[in-house]
Amino acid sequence: MEQPLFLAPVFQEKIWGGDKLNTVFGYDLPEGKIGECWAISAHKNGTCHVENGPYKGKKLDELWANNRELFGNAEGDVFPLLTKILDANDDLSVQVHPDDSYGLKHEGELGKTECWYVIDAEEGAEIIYGHHATSREELSQMIEEGRWDDLLRRIKVKKGDFFHVPSGTIHAIGAGIMILETQQSSDTTYRVYDYDRKGDDGQTRELHIKQSVDVTTVPHHDPKLAIKQTNLGNSSITEYVRTPFFNVYEWLISGVTTFKQQANYTLVSVLEGAGHLVLTDGKEEYSYDLAKGSHFILPNQIKSWRLEGDMQLIASEPGEQA
C-alpha cells in the first residue's frame, strides 16, 4: 500500500527572521535569523526530502521527475506548489510578485500567487496589503517620491485571519506575525521598498522598481473570498480559497473524521495538536503519528484516509492550472 510522504523541512535565513520556528514548532534550527521553513518544497532553492517509506531520502523534485504516478501523472515541468511557515520577527520588505507570463519570460520560472493563514500575531501587528495609487503613472511617481504612507495600505491582523495574495499585489508581512503560506513554486520577489535597512554586508538591499511597476495590479482590488465551513460531527472543514493554482482548507479535527480524495494529491501541515493518520487497504489498517510541525503529501494512490485526535491542519491541493 502506498504510504504518505513525510517531508523534512528546509530552513532559510532572512534578515527579518527570529527563533519562533524553534520555540513554537520545536524545529532544530541552524544558526542565524531563521525566517522561513520550506515545509513542502521541490524548488531548486530549497528542496525537501522524504523521511519515511520506500522513497526515504529521495528529494521531492526527483519524485516529480521520476515517479509522476504519485501525483496522478499531473502535467508540468516542476512540482507546482510550495508550503512555507514564516516567522516575521521584523518587517518584511514591501514586495510584489509577477504572474506566470512575466515570470517565465523575465525570470525563467513561474509567477507567484500565494495565500496566508495567520498562525499567530502580536497585538497591533499589521500587514501591507495593496496600495492607493489610481494609475501606473501615479504608482511610479509615489514610489519615486518615497510617499510610502500615502501609497501603502496597512491592515491590522489577528490569529486565524486568511488572505489571498494574487500575483501583482503589493504586500508585506509585518513584525510579530507568523503565517503558513501556500504559494506557487516560485522564488521571484521584486522589492519595492525595504525601509533603507542594510544587510550583513553593510549595503542596502537591491530594489526592483521597474519590475515592480511593470507587474503591480493598478488600481488594487481585494480578491473576494468565498469561505465555506462544513461541520462533520465535532470536526469541521473550512474551504478558504479556490484558485487556478491551489485550493486551501483548514481541517479542525476533534475525534475521528474520514476524508475522500478530491484532487491528484494533497499537501498537509499540522499546526496544532496531535493525532493519527489512518489508512486501510480493506484488510489491514496502517497508522501514522502526527504532531505539531509535521508536513506530508498524500499521493494519488491514497483515495481515502482517516484522521483521529485533536488537531488543526492546513491542507492544499493543486488547482485546475497547477
Rank of each mutant, 00 (worst) to 15 (best):
S186A: 08
A226C: 12
S186R: 04
I179A: 03
G108R: 05
D222K: 05
A315C: 08
E123N: 05
P30S: 14
V248S: 10
E126M: 08
G293T: 05
I40M: 05
Q141M: 06
S212N: 13
H43T: 12
L232I: 13
F71S: 11
H106L: 01
R153S: 11
R191G: 06
N45M: 09
F79C: 10
H164P: 10
I119H: 03
T134G: 15
S304W: 02
F163K: 10
L63C: 09
Q12D: 10
V24G: 02
K159I: 11
K59F: 14
H208K: 02
E75R: 10
R197C: 12
G309P: 10
T182V: 11
Y240W: 12
H171N: 09
I40N: 05
D187N: 10
E13L: 11
E206V: 12
H132V: 14
E69G: 09
T169Q: 09
R153M: 11
I227K: 01
Y193H: 04
D310Y: 01
A74N: 11
Y265R: 04
D281G: 00
L207K: 13
E272D: 13
L151Y: 09
A121P: 13
N22G: 06
N234F: 08
K198C: 01
I143H: 02
H220Y: 15
G202P: 00
A8D: 15
L279M: 06
E62L: 05
T230L: 12
N234M: 12
N66H: 15
T134R: 15
L252I: 03
K156V: 12
Q183F: 14
L70G: 00
V256S: 07
I34P: 01
G53H: 13
G199V: 11
N89T: 05
H276G: 01
Q3C: 07
N22F: 12
R147P: 07
V278E: 01
E51N: 08
R306H: 02
